[in-house]
């Protein structure tokens, strides 16, 4: 899983968010180091929705435009947990390696 996808799932882990909300949260989570573009965001949302990792939570009309909120599904949460463990294991390995030098 690439960083933007990981951050998008992570941004949705506490509550449903809309597209712009996901971008803001992802920026915040990464401390401003990773910036996700709108094209990348919706490409990822399409893939995640098809895979059943996220789903539509609700739709609100704001200034005459539809605003859709997405939430993490149970399967999506499982994938996020798995990916976090994988990344954690990698970081652990890296720390060991660096400590031995």
């Amino acid at each position: 899983m690439q960083d933007p996808t990981f951050l998008i799932l992570l941004a949705l882990s506490d509550r449903p968010r809309h597209g712009y909300g996901i971008l803001l949260e992802a920026k915040e989570l990464s401390g401003g180091t990773i910036r996700i573009g709108p094209g990348t965001l919706y490409g990822a949302l399409e893939r995640l929705e098809e895979a059943g990792h996220i789903e539509l939570d609700r739709e609100e009309i704001e200034d005459g435009r539809p605003r859709r909120y997405y939430r993490l599904t149970r399967r999506g949460r499982g994938v996020l947990v798995e990916e976090t463990q994988r990344r954690d294991a990698l970081v652990g390995l890296a720390k060991q390696r660096l400590a031995h030098r």
Binding site: H18, G19, Y20, L23, P38, G39, L41, Y42, L45, E46, R65, P66, R67, R68
Partner: peptide, 8 residues
């Protein structure tokens, strides 16, 4: 996705 993409 287009409307959302434009809005965001």
């Amino acid at each position: 996705w287009e409307e959302e993409l434009v809005l965001t």
